[in-house]
Nucleic acid binder design. Structure first.
Lengths: 232, 232
DNA sequence: CCAAAAGTGTTCTTTATACACCCATGT
DNA sequence: ACATGGGTGTATAAAGAACACTTTTGG
């Protein structure tokens, strides 16, 4: 294969997308990391990502990478920020358009198994020092998540289709790093009118089982088009 | 000059930054546009921007472009969003990392005069159909500005160092497209404790002159580091 | 019958909204 | 003296925070 086939009048940076993939499980917020098999940063962990193809925009690129890594499609994914420091990649000038995704970890588990690459879920608190400027990317992703969960219904993206209110509260408490009052939380979240009560409860626990709810996406879409604002 | 000197193994997009420059004057929110002198979109208006150099990151590139266009330095500028649709530029694959800047129009007026390019301030309501995907960029910039002005003290960036509370309220009303109560606005904005009263008033108007204030940047910095949240 | 977590209502405090009159200035 | 916009306080409504007991279930 011939090399250096693509020539331009002025120098151009390489463009990649990197994706911070959040999952929530066992009362912990986690991110999916890939262990680098080659230099630079060999042996260090990094967010999955890859080069932008010429026939796709950055959203498509990020979704493609996400699919290749997790087998998941149609998940919540959003552009985060673009990083372009001159020395962020020792191999040369590489800019990255970063994204973050929220996935239902239970779905991922079905898909997982093809361990071509060494991918691993890390609880946020146990993320090691990352390759490149990915520590910074994670910090920005966490801030975005924390900010956004308060006024957009994105928490549901991290839970199963059916979830309980205590589960949801737990998720909020962990992301916001704050204790919330059980009664007030329930009141507020039910007051949105966006939860569908499935009238069935968790079975097999040695205490009263919590009721299952699901998020009414269709109703939310209608309401938000009419200027309604979700807020917790 | 030789052409096509820069060769790579894989194709790369060209990378630019574009900057939405907001100013406020005569009770109107305005943006600075450049009339394109060449194809594509010859004769159409667009945001100032240019190619990323290999020795600068995108922030530096955006600030450089801003300086070249307005002669202003040390102004508020923030990354907005990156646009990468395959067909967004008919000349080929070009992605742009967009920014928005808030400037004090009075400062600009001192600098202006070198009309190498045809630059013009347009009130938001009179912006024509723009070149490339710049209509979309403007829409996103407006949303960002509207969202951000409520919980970060960025409105001051658009006013003179010394401003009156009615001026500030006017700015808020125009950006938020809403009428605000005069007494409540004043109460709220003064309650932050971040306005310095200059104890002098507007002279030469046929009514009681409004008092001048300025924004206490230093105090805000201190407070925000301690977790204080500006909100209007 | 005990342990463990779910479910529920009311009071109090804080914040937001609504609203009308006097004041200073130039003509 | 009048027209114009600036400055101010209070009362009401709404939202948020604080708080304790009962219920269900499995062991």
């Amino acid at each position: 294969m011939e090399t250096n086939k693509f020539c331009y009048e002025y120098p151009r940076p390489a463009v990649t997308t990197d994706c911070v993939i959040f999952g929530f499980d066992e009362g912990e917020l986690k991110v999916l990391l890939i262990e680098r098999g080659i230099e630079p940063y060999k042996g260090r962990w990094a967010f999955p990502g890859g080069f932008l193809n010429m026939d796709e925009n950055s959203d498509e690129c990020a979704r493609r990478e996400l699919f290749e890594e997790t087998g998941l499609e149609n998940v919540f994914i959003e552009q985060l920020y673009s990083f372009s420091d001159v020395d962020r990649d020792p191999r040369g000038r590489v800019i990255t358009i970063s994204y973050y995704a929220l996935i239902k970890l239970a779905d991922y588990k079905i898909q997982a198994g093809d361990d071509a690459e060494k991918a691993k879920w890390f609880p946020i608190s146990k993320v090691p020092t990352l390759a490149f400027d990915h520590d910074r990317i994670l910090r920005i992703a966490m801030n975005r998540l924390r900010g956004k969960i308060r006024y957009q219904p994105i928490g549901f993206e991290l839970l199963n289709e059916k979830f309980t209110i205590p589960e949801l509260q737990n998720l909020y408490e962990i992301i916001l790093e704050a204790q919330l009052d059980r009664r007030n939380f329930r009141k507020k979240i039910l007051a949105t009118g966006l939860l569908i009560d499935h009238k069935e409860s968790v079975k097999g626990v040695p205490h009263k089982g919590a009721r299952y709810f699901s998020f009414d996406k269709k109703k939310y879409k209608e309401l938000s088009e009419r200027g309604f604002n979700f807020e917790v």
